[in-house]
């Protein structure tokens, strides 16, 4: 979908300092806020203790048609086993251990270049193809499905919000080479940057190749990438909108015959 937001952003100029103060406060809150808190579900500690052996038995019987080599998918590695047990903020010591372990798994481009082709990057960001049980004879390269969770190019309105908005990412980071390297590391192994991040480890888990990750870094960091365009394609100022409005709640109590 390539849709253009409307060109109306005629907020009073007098409001801008207030908006700026509000923005800084919001950043402050974000900096001190803990990792997304998982709310109390219905009493984890109250129930019987479930052992790893039982879980594995249930998974094996629940997934009887296991393609060759998929056994490892049923078992979390050390990092994921640790993260699954943590509800809320990751204790600092545990977090540092995870980040060090995962950082050691990052493989860097041999040519030392972090930016590939943003056009290929956009295609990778759009594609959700790969590694599903219907993809066992691979028809095309795996995708990163970045738009499922992130806003990137302003031309794409169908984006998710599980991850942060990355619109204007390179521009905001002043196209610094150091930030291109960090972006590469984050995509290659998100756990090296944020312990227990919800984001997949695209390089470390063999989802995307080094070249594909470089293409994604270019999508973020290339000045020519639509991600870094100052104005959306429609030529309006509405790219300044931080977030789309949430849909109105559904009317309650639907009538039933």
């Amino acid at each position: 979908m390539s849709l253009r937001p409307p060109g109306s952003n005629d907020e009073s100029i007098a409001m801008r300092p207030l908006i700026a103060i509000g923005f800084l406060l919001a950043i402050g809150v974000l900096l001190v806020a803990p990792a997304p808190m998982v709310m109390a579900d219905s009493g984890r500690s109250a129930g019987p203790v479930i052992g790893e052996r039982q879980v594995r038995r249930v998974l094996r019987s629940g997934f009887p048609a296991l393609p060759a080599g998929w056994e490892t998918r049923l078992v979390p590695d050390e990092t994921m086993a640790t993260c699954a047990d943590i509800r809320g903020e990751v204790p600092k010591e545990i977090g540092e251990r995870i980040k060090a372990r995962e950082r050691a798994r990052i493989v860097y481009p041999q040519d030392g270049q972090f930016l590939g082709d943003w056009r290929r990057g956009e295609a990778i960001a759009q594609s959700g193809y790969g590694m599903r049980f219907t993809d066992t004879t691979a028809q095309r390269p795996n995708g990163g499905n970045c738009y499922a969770c992130h806003q990137l190019s302003p031309d794409e309105v169908s984006y998710g919000t599980i991850g942060a908005s990355l619109k204007g990412f390179g521009r905001i980071h002043k196209f610094r080479p150091e930030d291109a390297r960090i972006a590469y590391e984050k995509i290659y192994n998100s756990q090296a940057i944020v312990a227990c991040s919800m984001m997949p480890r695209f390089g470390a888990n063999g989802i995307l190749s080094i070249e594909q990750i470089k293409d994604l870094v270019a999508l973020l960091m290339d000045p020519a990438s639509p991600v870094n365009r100052e104005e959306p394609a429609g030529g309006s100022a509405s790219s300044a909108q931080p977030e789309p409005t949430q849909p109105a709640p559904l009317p309650q109590g639907k009538a039933r015959p």
Binding site: V58, G62, F63, P64, A65, P67, R73, L74
Partner: peptide, 11 residues
């Protein structure tokens, strides 16, 4: 990216 869930399984 998990395998096919068996209908009626304990899982």
């Amino acid at each position: 990216r998990m395998p096919e869930l068996k209908l009626g399984s304990e899982l």
